[in-house]
Design a binder for these strands. Structure first.
Lengths: 342, 342
DNA sequence: GTTAGCACTCGATGCTGTTGAGTGCTAACA
DNA sequence: TGTTAGCACTCAACAGCATCGAGTGCTAAC
């Protein structure tokens, strides 16, 4: 059996309605819709076919039909018509984003807020991948006896800091001198290239080898770890509880538990980067706890490099086309803000 | 009518049982308990008295009794017997706290995790009040043309950073020189005293007045604002959903909404500081959404100054004495860790 | 003062019948 | 041949009703 024009039309109408109401859709409902000129009986026949083809499920005999994951997949790939955001909305989002802090974490935090407000779903943003950033400045600031704070400023304005121990009796001026050397050698290098630069630096070491060695280690550790907890920001975690899918407290708890594990989130949001928008529907995202969630992700850039991910987690029954519009827009907006320092 | 010894005993038994089971407590249950040598009938008479005195509520005629907020108040003030934490537990908490980052935000974040894990409730920690901190170092780091990052290191190792604009053409070395002057003038001053120090600095200004002026403004803004969103850290938000009090999704949503508003949390956790542990039961904390929550708070110190608050939010039916023990212990542990830099 | 006994209350539970949204099938229609 | 009206059928949701049992308050006896 093939999907003809009418089946597409009906399937689309069913999905649209279900996304709106979360209730199984009956033949009468579809028949009444403008644009569909068939009687309930005809619709029923088509629905029966669609069910056989795996696009619809029936919770029980006397209920309407519910779209299957296969149907959502078809919907996002072919059926869905994209809706533009109004200028008003764009402006509002832009304003909210721009008004906030210039610090990267602040920007990302407010972006997550804007995303979850605009979509009413839960948003997740992964901070820029360190390996795509370039070092602008390295500075060692004395903190205590034998301790210094290392601050790394990158082209995205992102600041990574870590406390390292320094040789006894090192003065602020000496630390500044070391900082200058580090900055000179490392400026405009990607964080990835730090290793080579340091090797060279160590060969003709005028400064204390131990200090440089430890500094190198700290930077490398940061690179490997791929960032700490604060690098994954969640917005509007409670939004998800608005939807009947999560009216069951134990489901809600599981969902919130996923949000608390930043590592899981990072994995969930990882994407192959080839396409602009990636959509994973239900079980496609591997995690049983998110079996009736969809995850839509886009990426943003810092400078020339694709650098981080922003995404929305919502029920599979989510308003895909609005979410996509919002993510595309915010992806660009976020790239602009974060690339401002270049 | 007065509360005699036996009434105390029975009330305590009821509260203990209710905290454990969350089910209305009947006379038989109490009668069976070891330590209470009376028949259900006697207990019933006493319970009737206790209800008349406002210590017990009865959900409906044929149900057991439930402690009122007045009863919890009496319980925490007089009845409760304190339980010591085991050495094992202490060690585990200490380890979890110590293992983590040396950065203040990291310490607080992991402390919040430890607190919520140890109590199974939701924890909230307010970062050190800026006004109690002393400046150790101020450093301006070039970020871009006409822009610098100002890093303030304090005695708690806490780092506040903000981007400020600087006059055109200022070199890294010049910024360093300004940094040195700032550090010299401000070192060991409380952040509060910054204003005076700056005024003096501006009088015999060798450096660009505009730069200093703006720097001052930034520091002051930080002081007034009382910190940004990242200064209130919540641990285990989903823990609360484990309790039958929140089996209703809309209640759960309200609760989570409160946790998202950092300002509200800051207000909720503010305390008069006179006593070591503060307990607010149900409506005592003013917020309708938290009407059946209790908030227990303790404070921690950085150096010599009482500086921040750590607290637990749980159902009024919470295990007060365990929560208190944990908070006392963690308050000390946190003070120790944060005062390490002195 | 304490307790056994007993009638009483009332939410929880489970059973039953009814309702209505929705289906599938068949036969008539264009 | 595709479409539709008609109709019997299904089944979750809901309301009504009886039952059960945990727990109470009261009274009388110990």
């Amino acid at each position: 059996m093939q999907l003809d024009e009418r089946k597409y039309l009906i399937l689309q109408a069913i999905i649209d309605d279900y996304i709106l109401t979360a209730m199984p859709v009956g033949s009468r409902t579809i028949s009444r819709k403008s644009g569909v000129g068939y009687s309930p009986a005809t619709i029923r026949n088509e629905m029966s076919d669609l069910e056989e083809l795996g696009y619809l499920d029936q919770p029980h005999t006397s209920a309407g039909r519910v779209p299957s994951n296969k149907a959502y997949r078809l919907y996002v790939d072919h059926l869905m018509k994209t809706v533009k955001l109004t200028n008003d909305e764009r402006e509002r989002m832009q304003d909210h984003l721009a008004a906030k802090s210039k610090q990267v974490e602040g920007v990302i935090r407010s972006a997550a807020g804007v995303l979850s407000d605009a979509t009413k779903y839960t948003s997740v943003i992964v901070a820029p991948k360190l390996s795509t950033l370039r070092i602008k400045h390295v500075q060692l600031v004395p903190v205590a006896e034998r301790m210094a704070l290392m601050v790394i400023v990158t082209n995205a304005g992102i600041v990574k800091d870590a406390v390292i121990s320094v040789p006894e009796g090192m003065t602020a001026d000496e630390l500044y001198a070391v900082s200058r050397t580090l900055t000179e050698k490392l400026a405009d290098k990607p964080l990835e290239a730090v290793r080579q630069a340091f090797a060279e630096l160590l060969r003709n070491a005028e400064y204390n080898r131990k200090l440089l060695g430890e500094t190198l280690q700290v930077i490398e550790k940061r690179l490997e770890a791929g960032g700490d907890a604060s690098d994954v920001i969640v917005g509007g975690p409670a939004n998800m509880l608005e939807y009947p899918e999560y009216s069951d407290v134990s489901k809600a708890r599981n969902f919130l538990a996923v949000l608390e594990s930043k590592d899981t989130l990072r994995k969930l949001l990882s994407r192959d980067g080839s396409m602009e928008i990636s959509i994973r529907i239900g079980p496609e995202n591997q995690l049983p706890a998110l079996n009736d969630c969809s995850i839509v992700t886009a990426s943003y850039r810092v400078g020339d490099h694709s650098s981080g991910t922003l995404g929305i987690i919502g029920p599979t029954r989510m308003n895909y086309n609005r979410v996509i519009s919002v993510l595309e827009f915010m992806g660009r907006a976020l790239s602009d803000v974060l690339s401002e320092y270049r």
